[in-house]
Amino acid sequence: MNFTTPAVIAFLVVLLLAPAVAGVATRTKSLLTGRKGAPTLQLYFDLWKLVQRGAVFSETTTWIFRFAPVLVVATILLAATVVPLDGRLSLIKFSGDAVAFAYALGLGRFFLVLAALDTGSSFEGMGASREVTFASLVEVGLFLSFGTLVVVTHEISLSGMLGAPFALHWTANAAALVMIGACLFALLLAECARVPVDDPATHLELTMVHEVMVLDHSGPDLALILYGSALKLAVLGAMIISVLIPRANLSPAASIAVLMLGLIVVGIGVGIVESIMARLRLPKVPLYLAGASSLALFSLILVLWNPA
């Protein structure tokens, strides 16, 4: 436990700003496609509206369906505590917490999938199957990226990999780390159900991947799931910022300012990708993820080759 003030503030900043990051992405997309678009803070209004409503549960569902939304947010919060959001130390740090990070997200997804299957809807089952397929491929790239960071820093906690000692290794491994950043961004788009993999704005159940799984959730449950997705985007975005901009030498205030600016840039990046790219056909998605993984593999080979 490292409850230093900057770490706590950075954590709260990410929790509070998360819906705005998703809002920036949507806003960028609407501006680039010449539409007026919803306000940047629309997700906050949506969450507020949903929280005040009651929830409707199908008679075929069990406790899993009611439990899943809480667990989704809880696991993402857990994952957020092991990421050094302020650029130095995470709230919780232990040896091998990178694996905990990956599987906390995995556990949340597992329960989301169970809840989708629990409704008995065939559309939701289809979405669940696609989501799990893509997620298993994301893992390859994620762990190759972690492996590269481990080789670079000789640390096996995320705080060690991305926190204070990390900056020393940047100059020697700049090319590999830029590739890791690119790989993580590609994985973020897949993990957060963004455009080349999934389209958050689609209205047809057959083409949905992530969105179709949450069709039966309503009221506060839906609010939790929407907030969870936004939070996941923000946490993964913060991780990319930590890889690309080591902040250990900045003052805490400057570090948090960089984090906030970085999150906005990530949001804009996601929005730009959504505006200029069409969604990939489903059989093409594994190729996209394999491409991202080979990027990570290449950087791993590179740092093993040149362990300076």
Binding site: P286, L287, A290, S294, L297, I301, W305
Partner: peptide, 17 residues
Amino acid sequence: GYMGSMLLGAAALGAAF
């Protein structure tokens, strides 16, 4: 397939190094 070629490419990368 593209996926297969990509894996072959990754194998080539490892082999070369």
